[in-house]
Every structure is written in C-alpha cells, then in structure tokens.
C-alpha cells in the first residue's frame, strides 16, 4: 500500500500528457475560477441569494480527479460542488441558471447552489449534509459491482466529513466488499471555521485509509497534475476490481466558507502564502516554462471562457422563474 506521496507523479503527467490535454486541464480550472468569481459578483448584486459556497482555490482537485475518469464514471459531491459539476461537463449556463433559481437550471431551480444533480452527466448530486454523499457513492459502487459494470465512482468530501459516522461506515463497507469507489478528501484545513487539528485527532487524513485496509495517499491539491496522477492510479485499481482508495488532496479555499463568512479565523499572511500557490498560476508556469506553451494561447482560453461565462449569466438572467403550477411536480415518481 503506497502510503507515501509519489513526488514524481506530477512531473510524469506533465511530460506524458499531450499539449491538448494539458490545455484542457487549464481550461477547466479557468472555467471554474471565472464561474466562481462571476457567482460572487452576482451574489453581491442580489441576483443569487441563499447559501453559496465557492470553490475558488480548490480547482485542481475537481479538475485533476475528474480528468482521470471516463464520462461514464460517476461523481458524488458536496455542497461546494459548482466546480465538480462543471468539471464533469455541465453547461455553465444551466449551473448558473440553477444558482439564479430559474426553471432552466440543472434542477429546474428547485435545488439551488447546494443540490446540483444531473444523472445524464453521471453527476450524482451535491449533498448538503456533511458526509451525506459517502453512503450513496458506496451504493453506486455496489450497483456497478452487481451489474459487473466497468464504471468507477469518485466521491468528493471535505475534511469536515471525517468525524461523521457516514465516513467510517462507508469506507468500511467499500473496503469489505472491494467496491469501485475512489474517495477524494478535499482537506482545506477548515470545517467552516474550525481548524482541522481541532476537529480530528489524526490530522494526516490519508492515514484513515490504513485501518480500512485501502491505499491512502496525500497529494498536493494545488497541483492539478499530481491530483490527476494519483487519481489515475486509484481509478485503475477500482476498475480492476481491487477496491477503493482514499486520496487526501491538501488544498485551500480562497474565499470564506460561504458568501456570508468574513473569514476572521485565518490570517492574511496565511491566505497570501496559499494564493501564491494558486493552482491555475501553478499550471500556467509549468506549461509556459516546461512545455513552452505560448502565453497567448493561454490568454485565448481565458478570453473564450470569459465569453462563455458572460453567456451563462445572460442565459440565467433572462430565463423565467419556475411557475407555481409546477410546484408539486417531481416530489413523487410519476409527477
């Protein structure tokens, strides 16, 4: 069981991936970043209301892990799931419309920011109860195994989920039954405002893999290539029928827990240190220095994404509200 971080994973990925693939990783991270920045702007303008948790800073985790999957593989997520949903291929238009509460949204405006769900994309839901998605991911794995399917389930959750019983119940069962699940823990150091070492007795979270007899690895969650490389190994293992793995991606959210969090529990110095490790700048540097990608090519991608985000906002803004006649629909099957 490889419990030690393989420091060459990222470098290997940088050298072996085609330029188009690397640019796709870059594009996806930029898409999430710009989407989240625009979301914050729309929130400030009152276009988006309610509870809203942004993913800026953590892009490398969703993008790196999901890029290691096939389209047919499943993703289960948390309430900070805009990034996972976009990385899985959701149209930014329908995600933005959902945040606006519009009928054209991915859940027809019924779920909002915390409950994105699209079974066609095999994005099996953001779960707004901490740890709530893990048993469901385990069940998806059970179904895949029963049907002898080739799919893998990738389950994201935060450090805050580890003290939940559902985490332990799920890892135990997934390991016992050798289910094809990759558990990806996004350790951003804070469960809302509580520092991870004040919440969990074992702050090296990947070590929870050991008692559940599965490989566990800690990766740099600010490096999309390292996340990608580690997830590739875990996915291969799951697809071979060798069971689940636990990946701890150490990352940082650039904003507060939610839009209403003034982030008084973190020092400006700490935030600056992490901002210097920005996953997008990180990949940009590697692409330009080590793969000699022209700055202009990256600029084109950013401009293209910006247009896409503007279109998404326009679409969301111009879409109709759900009609009251539709209120009861979708509560029960057949409705």
């Amino acid at each position: 069981m490889a419990l030690e971080r393989d420091k060459h994973t990222a470098q290997r990925a940088l050298l072996t991936l085609h330029e188009a693939q690397l640019l796709e990783l870059y594009r996806r991270m930029v898409l999430i970043r710009q989407f989240e920045e625009k979301t914050a702007e729309m929130y400030a303008r009152g276009k988006i209301t309610g509870f809203c948790h942004l993913y800026a800073g953590e892009e490398a985790v969703a993008v790196g892990a999901i890029y290691a999957l096939y389209d047919k593989d499943y993703v289960v997520s948390t309430y900070r799931e805009h990034g996972h949903c976009l990385a899985k291929g959701a149209d930014p238009k329908v995600v933005m419309a959902e945040l606006f509460g519009k009928v054209t949204g991915i859940s027809k405006g019924r779920g909002g920011s915390m409950h994105l769900f699209d079974q066609d994309l095999r994005f099996m839901g953001g779960y707004a109860i901490v740890g709530g998605g893990l048993p469901i991911a385990t069940g998806l794995g059970l179904s895949v195994q029963y049907n002898e399917g080739p799919e893998v389930v990738c389950c994201f959750f935060g450090d805050g989920a580890l003290p939940q019983g559902a985490f332990h119940e799920s890892l135990n069962m997934a390991s016992l039954w050798k289910l094809p699940v990759v558990f990806v823990c996004e350790n951003n150091f804070y469960g809302m405002g509580t520092l991870v070492q004040n919440a969990i007795c074992q702050e090296e979270l990947y070590r929870f893999a050991q008692p559940y007899k599965m490989p566990g690895v800690r990766v740099d969650g600010m490096d999309v290539l390292e996340v990608y490389g580690a997830t590739m190994e875990a996915v291969a293992r799951a697809r071979e029928g060798d069971g689940p793995s636990l990946i701890e991606a150490v990352t940082y959210r650039f904003r507060g827990h939610s839009m209403s969090d003034p982030v008084e529990y973190r020092s400006k110095r700490e935030e600056r240190i992490w901002q210097e490790r920005d996953p997008i700048k990180n990949l940009r540097r590697k692409l330009t220095v080590e793969r000699h990608v022209a700055e202009g090519r990256l600029g084109e991608i950013e401009a293209e994404v910006a247009r896409q985000i503007d279109d998404a906002v326009k679409f969301a803004d111009e879409s109709p509200e759900p009609s009251v006649e539709e209120l009861g629909k979708g509560v029960y099957a057949g409705s």
Binding site: G139, L142, S143, N172, M173
Partner: peptide, 21 residues
C-alpha cells in the same frame, strides 16, 4: 449481510436504487 451501519444501509440502497436496482 451488512455491518451494523444503518446510515450506510440506507445510503447504499439509495445509490443502488438511483441506478435502477
């Protein structure tokens, strides 16, 4: 047969059900 893990029993059931079980 499952371990004594009620949340998991239901949650795993949901995961299986949504895929047609």
């Amino acid at each position: 047969d499952t371990p004594i893990s009620e949340a998991l029993i239901i949650g795993a059931g949901i995961g299986a059900a949504v895929l047609g079980m």
